[in-house]
């Protein structure tokens, strides 16, 4: 049994005053193996970004705080590390890229200096070596004429190019895990295709594990091997990529898959999930999807379902589909 690279176990994050906290992430668990690619998919308020920020302990305290759980990276619980040790982990072992390539780069520093700074922090190198490394990274992410662009400033790059620079910066120190929070959301479709293609290429060459946060199931399907579906701060389903798209077990996953417009279907109408996404932490008891669920039974209102196993690689938190699967299994056993 291999030790996973990253293991998040029963994580909970609260915001607001201690007396009346809002739990925006509750009982989230998942694992990433070395070189693996896991996607967290969810809508606004699902807690997916907070989960990713918690891993690097980037949640601003106050108002936020991690109230329970473990985040093990290579067997070390990051939540027990002294705060002063975290900067060593960030960038060197775990790197992160954000949605906004515009504001994530310092406008008054050259591209070369910014990537160089990331390297300088974690690796002892001479100026020459560092320069060569920066050029190599820029070439790797597909910036044309990398040596010539070293002294350019971020505003001289387009959005897609800036995201490439961000990726180069994140990968400069050969991290074992790359957390990408909506890396292509701000980009146009054709540019998104380029960036996704680049991520594939980098995974093949560098063998970096990827945790991809996105609301877009298409992007997730493209990059990931496993998927964690979050809704209102909880994991509602977790499975390998094929099971999620072929045999989704949580009604929310099913609804989501059916409601997204696709290029290749000729349905006259889209399937729709009624209602709106609940505010983070507004569901106090029972299944968070109860309000909008088409399969709901009375039990769902009062009792949060645990994660049931559906096959070796799939787990979902639903009372109804779990009992249906159970019944089916018994039937099969009888025959």
């Amino acid at each position: 049994m291999t030790v996973p690279l990253l293991k998040v176990d029963n994580l909970a994050v609260e915001f607001g005053p201690k007396a009346n906290p809002i739990r925006v992430v509750d009982g989230v668990s998942f694992e990433i193996t070395a070189g693996g690619a896991v996607g967290i998919v969810g809508e606004s308020g699902s807690g997916k970004s907070i989960t990713s920020l918690s891993i690097l302990r980037l949640i601003s305290e106050p108002p936020g705080r991690i109230v329970q759980g473990r985040i093990e990276f290579n067997g070390v619980n990051l939540l027990e590390l002294p705060r002063s040790k975290m900067p060593d982990i960030r960038g060197r072992d775990i790197a992160m890229i954000f949605q906004e390539p515009m504001s994530s780069l310092n406008p008054v520093m050259t591209i070369g200096d910014q990537i160089g700074e990331a390297i300088k922090l974690h690796e002892a190198m001479t100026g020459e070596e560092r320069r060569a490394r920066v050029i190599e990274m820029l070439r790797l992410v597909g910036i044309p004429d990398p040596a010539g662009r070293l002294d350019a400033y971020p505003h001289q790059f387009s959005g897609g190019m800036r995201q490439r620079v961000m990726i180069a910066m994140a990968l400069a120190c050969n991290p074992k895990l790359l957390i990408a929070d909506e890396p292509t959301t701000a980009l146009d479709v054709t540019i998104q295709a380029q960036v996704l293609d680049l991520m594939h290429k980098l995974r093949r060459t560098l063998n970096t594990a990827v945790l991809l946060i996105s609301h877009d199931l298409g992007v997730i399907a493209d990059v990931c091997e496993r998927v964690v579906v979050m809704y209102a701060g909880r994991v509602v389903e977790e499975a390998d990529i094929r099971s999620i798209f072929r045999t989704p077990q949580h009604p929310y996953t099913r609804g989501l898959l059916q409601s997204i417009p696709r290029l290749d279907d000729d349905r006259d109408r889209l399937y729709q999930i009624p209602g709106s996404v609940p505010l983070a932490g507004s569901v106090k008891k029972g299944c968070p999807f109860y309000e909008r669920c088409s399969l709901r039974i009375e039990k769902c209102m009062n009792k949060m379902p645990p994660m049931f196993s559906f096959g070796p690689d799939q787990r979902a938190a639903c009372w109804v589909t779990a009992s249906q699967a159970d019944a089916k299994e018994k039937e099969a056993a009888l025959q």
Partner: peptide, 9 residues
């Protein structure tokens, strides 16, 4: 098309 009744407004 009805929204669910939103008690949480």
């Amino acid at each position: 098309h009805s929204e669910l009744p939103s008690p949480s407004l």
